[in-house]
Design a binder for these strands. Sequence first.
DNA 1: TTGTACGCGTTATCAC
DNA 2: GTGATAACGCGTACAA
Lengths: 341, 341
Amino acid sequence: MAKIDDVAKLANVSKGTVSNVFSQKRPTSNEVKERVMSVSRQLNYVPNHIARSLVTKRTMAIGLTIPHGSFFFSAFHTQFINGIILEASYYGYRVLLDMIPLQKVQTPFLSSYPIDGAVVMSPTKDDERINLMHSEQIPFVTVGRVMNSNVTNAYNVDNDNHTIIYRICKYLIDKGHQNLMFLNANELMTVSIDRKAGFIKAMEDHHLVVEEHMIHHKPDLSSSEYMDYGYEETINILGKQMKNVTAIIADDDRTAFCVLNAIKDLNLRVPEDVSIFVICGDLSMMVQSNPSLTSMDLQPSELGAQSVKLLMNQLGVLQGDFPGNVIIESKIIERNSCSTI
Amino acid sequence: MAKIDDVAKLANVSKGTVSNVFSQKRPTSNEVKERVMSVSRQLNYVPNHIARSLVTKRTMAIGLTIPHGSFFFSAFHTQFINGIILEASYYGYRVLLDMIPLQKVQTPFLSSYPIDGAVVMSPTKDDERINLMHSEQIPFVTVGRVMNSNVTNAYNVDNDNHTIIYRICKYLIDKGHQNLMFLNANELMTVSIDRKAGFIKAMEDHHLVVEEHMIHHKPDLSSSEYMDYGYEETINILGKQMKNVTAIIADDDRTAFCVLNAIKDLNLRVPEDVSIFVICGDLSMMVQSNPSLTSMDLQPSELGAQSVKLLMNQLGVLQGDFPGNVIIESKIIERNSCSTI
DNA sequence: TTGTACGCGTTATCAC
DNA sequence: GTGATAACGCGTACAA
């Protein structure tokens, strides 16, 4: 591999000049520029990323911290990641997939982290990954609200989860539904905490009693029930005639499909017998479903893009005065899975 | 940030000794080891990853080369990536998401590649990304067959696509279907080339004529029709009564859902009127579908894991004599979407 | 505008 | 088993 010295020698210039030609941090004459580039091509030279990082103290990579374990991306995550990559590459940054255990952080790091910053997905209450980022002084942005006692002023991008679930409930209640079942996200996630609160508030405001069968939480990623979440719950609750649930709010597309399947097995129809509302559904998939599913567009791609913007701002790559908390708009997209009673 | 010199000085040892304690490449006395670790904790020292890379010439990261553009992960990709990450982390490697344009490679790189090797997804015929890897001397493994004239002896992991489609056709033909429609992957992908050949061979062996309406190719990722692939095709072909298609082979789960939707709009039933067979479906999703879909298990997770193993072998991390081409087993999983005529 | 000496933090290679 | 020193390849002051 050709080094900068080789190019400098052959092009009859100094190392510094070659460096300037590539980094473009200082102007160089066109003549010299041409000569250097020509020699570089000839020698197959490209600046060494590692050596450059050593002195610039930038790796030009950000970490995408995803839940550890046999993780599963729903369509929501997919589009979210898409947004991250596109935005990061816009600033010349690469994305490093990073799996830090969610529960207990491993023993001390063997070496420093080769990233300039990180986007932390699905934060939990007292998330140890966030504590880690904090103590390691790694700039980070979370997607979802931070609930770590010792970490304050963390940058984050989020939907307004409290309002989201409130609006969904209102939407259904306005259609005459009084007995809702909410298939919430995993209990540890901060989003699920906010959504639960929003659900309860909506019930109270409409003078409805929150019963035990109304709120469920997605099992742990490692659980065998994870993939089926929504099926058993639907069978159990709707199977018992005394619990007259008429509408189900599903956390994501996978959950929604499981619910659909359970409803079919119970010989019920959507939306005639039961209505379904999906929160984080892949929009195109919702249309292809049968019936098409009414859902809340959370703009996952935008969520990803904005989180990168905030991170770039912290890294000094993107100038400007940015707010610490960005709320991404969401809106209800009506399709054919919710009926009026 | 504490440096190795600081630790060495405070622990009354040399830089080299501190290095040895951390890298464990040479034995050190327990007494010294304790002292060094104690001081390191005190100073909050961790070895600098970049500086280490500069001399070891290893970044401990591999690239995952995914198609560029507004890409979309199907469930297949998701599980594939899962396999990659899990296996890579086993060897202490991280995964860098890498989006190199599929069609035309950008102008010369601004700097060298900060990865030790790469896994290239979805290779196309004369894939420029592969030419790039080849010319840049980056060790790589493709997932799918390589069809680049100048690149020979490339390591790759794959399913036996020719046989896969042959077996699917035979399975359907044995059930009495004579008029199949095959919704193939994108025309550029080498997998689609192999599968097309397998389809034609199966038809010939069973003395069936391959008609134009039988083989379709997924539109480009950038196309607006990408997300709907399967819908229009089904409407068009099954809508015309003269084309008496009785079974459809769908490339992936998304395509299958679009087909299901079209069939519903045509007031036909699965599997009574039309049978559906899915190739790369997320297994758990196939079960939740209605009806559950008969599919081919391609073991995407295993595909990912094996590709990393092959890469690690090239990198010298994993010892042993590995074959250049690994074929991952696949098997038909019967569910309720294919009927006997 | 261009050339030079030095620093970045670590590992490898010798001596001891 | 441990200590000193030379790379590793590039960026950046500072001098010319």
